[in-house]
Design a protein around this nucleic acid. Structure first.
Lengths: 112, 112
DNA sequence: GAATTATATTAGCATTCGCTAATATGTGTG
DNA sequence: CACACATATTAGCGAATGCTAATATAATTC
């Protein structure tokens, strides 16, 4: 059981950003074009585009072109399942994690 | 269905680092002390300690003290399940994600 | 209680990351 | 072909992150 932790970390990092989580939620049930996503999230086109590239590079989403539109969707059902389990586990610890945030200037992770 | 994406992202970020993934794997089946982990991973004590604090702050692991030792273990069975699913989904996309790494200097996510 | 061992914290640095603004590419339309 | 619209890319900045080395705290042992 070898393990490439670097690459695995990169994969998971795809999920570890608030904007990317919103994008994933946004396209979870239905493929959407970039501009639809930008609209729904009320986001910046460049920013969303970059996050989409990230998610694609991480193997989390796929795209298909239709005329001048590009539709993005989750890669497959396993990704959906993973998102659901993440959510389920997250709600268990949410309070604790949020609390950890409160009392420090440097991030919870590296912070003293 | 409200959603605090900031906090959720922070939770997931706990899993998105190669050292933390190694730590989690290391204590997956059995609680371990800091020095055991440091030894097994051949790591830096300060570094490991900081990552443990991060994982704890993210609600992923818990600790208990026994004399001068502090034992760390995964928070609960759901975390194990999440790790397993992450692994299962990861192996599907591993090749692709690794490839994405190759050809760029800036990170896969933000990189041109 | 001095020395030892185990762990945590701090500080500082180099790198990565996420964002915005500007520009480029590509595709359809008059 | 000129123009509009959809998306991608680039550059640059400030903030977050991960690392190491040094120091602090806490519990243990002699």
């Amino acid at each position: 059981m070898k393990a490439n932790y670097e690459v695995k970390a990169k994969f998971i990092r795809g999920f570890s950003d608030k904007t990317r989580l919103q994008i994933l939620e946004c396209i979870k049930n239905k493929e959407k074009t970039v501009s639809q996503i930008v609209d729904e999230l009320n986001g910046n086109q460049s920013n969303i585009s970059q996050h989409l590239a990230c998610l694609k590079g991480c193997g989390i989403i796929v795209s298909r072109q239709e005329g001048k539109y590009i539709f993005y969707s989750l890669r497959n059902a396993e990704i959906v399942q993973l998102m659901n389990i993440m959510e389920a586990v997250f709600v268990q610890v949410e309070g604790e994690v949020a609390a950890c945030d409160k009392n420090d200037e440097r991030d919870c992770c590296s912070k003293p």
